[in-house]
Amino acid sequence: MIPIHYYLILSAVMFITGVVGVLTRRNAIIIFMCIELMLNSVNLTFVAFSSYLGNATGQMFVFFVMAVAAAEAAVGLAIVIALFRNKQTVNINDVNILKW
């Protein structure tokens, strides 16, 4: 059996990759994918602990997260498309109208 910390290390690496991607990349779709990466790293942690502890609660949470992620993907992609229709770009440096 693969020890639990292997899963946790992999999950942490995935999560940090996601965070760094969100903070540094400028392409909205890549940022979006990075968010998915972070969500899935959390899912991995949930599943690992569920298996390790012999408790199904973690797996239940994963389903919730996946449902939310699906909804989020739909809304997020819709935003990106709307954005592209308006500005002909998905570079978030060009989308700074929040700043006065």
Binding site: V22, L23, I92, K99, W100
Partner: peptide, 14 residues
């Protein structure tokens, strides 16, 4: 502090 760049805010959250 209010740069308007969402990523800066996200970095601060992190």
């Amino acid at each position: 502090a209010q740069s308007g760049v969402v990523q800066n805010y996200a970095a601060l959250i992190v």
